[in-house]
């Protein structure tokens, strides 16, 4: 069912019907990635760049191509702007895309972004013609700086990668959304469908989900659940929620009630 106001997600010069970006990391097999991709209708999916092994069987690229899903390479595993820029350029040459999910990690245990290196890498890659989608801290000031650097979107984390802790600072996500002139994609931390729904209710333009889908007991089922939640959250955001009130507000009319026992009918 289509409702007036339905609109695509537009990043740079491309538009997407699906507001869910699938992260392919963590799956037990290429087949599971394919099943999840089909179940959630994602049009864009992330991949990492690693040393090629001619002995490896089954390619994630083939699986995504079969389902008509475009690849969004990332720079996962990079700890400096220099490393990330090299991986981005390798991805551009390998995959013939200028799009890059830019990750520059600053801490091994939490995998939190290094904002200083991230901004430096973003500036360098934007200048080199990349469409940069940076994985960032949930910091409204950093988000603004990344946008000013020319990033095509900002991707604040809900909580650490793979933690499934959901959105730890919803207020910051709302502040990022309020200030952003580019799409805001919540990236990292989604544990289950309700987290993705919350991100969209907070005003995010999309959600990127990997582990919550790929490491679920049934990846395909969770993929569908999260895609439905993303759509529900988007609708709820556009519909405009009612204000929160401390006390009740009756929804049924007062008028015409049957009088309580002991009062005369009138």
């Amino acid at each position: 069912m289509s409702v007036p106001g339905d609109d695509p997600l537009v990043i740079a010069d491309r538009s997407f019907r699906s507001r869910l970006i699938l992260g392919t990391g963590g799956a037990a097999s290429i087949e599971q990635i394919a099943q999840a991709a089909e179940a959630c209708g994602a049009e864009l999916a992330t991949v990492a760049m690693r040393r090629a092994d001619t002995a490896s069987r089954g390619s994630v690229l083939d699986a995504l191509a079969t389902h008509g899903i475009d690849v969004l390479p990332n720079t996962a595993g990079c700890y400096t702007a220099r490393e990330a820029a090299l991986v981005a350029r390798l991805a551009r040459d390998a995959l013939e895309t200028t799009w890059i999910k830019l990750e520059v990690i600053g801490d091994e245990r939490t995998l939190l972004p290094d904002p200083v290196e991230l901004l430096a890498a973003a500036e360098e890659l934007v200048a080199d013609g990349f469409v940069v989608l940076p994985y960032a801290s949930d910091d409204p000031v950093l988000a603004r700086r990344l946008e000013q650097a020319g990033c095509a979107a900002v991707m604040p984390l809900g909580s650490p990668i793979g933690s499934g802790l959901g959105i730890r600072n919803p207020h910051n996500i709302a502040l990022i959304v309020e200030n952003a002139g580019v799409p805001v994609i919540l990236d990292a931390g989604v544990g289950t469908a309700s987290d993705a729904c919350t991100a969209m209710e907070l005003g995010c333009d999309g959600v990127l989900v990997a582990s919550a889908i790929t490491r679920a007991h049934s990846p395909a089922r969770m993929a569908r659940a999260i895609a439905t939640a993303v759509a529900a959250g988007r609708d709820a955001r556009l519909a405009g929620r009612i204000p929160r009130r401390f006390h009740a507000v009756a929804s049924s009319p007062d008028e015409g009630r049957v009088p309580p026992a002991g009062l005369p009918f009138s």
């Binding site: 963590g26 799956a27 990635i33 990492a48 090629a52 994630v60 690229l61 996962a76 390998a94 990997a210």
Partner: peptide, 10 residues
């Protein structure tokens, strides 16, 4: 020499 390709990730 580094030869890289895409693998599941992120």
């Amino acid at each position: 020499v580094e030869i890289v390709t895409a693998v599941p990730g992120g």
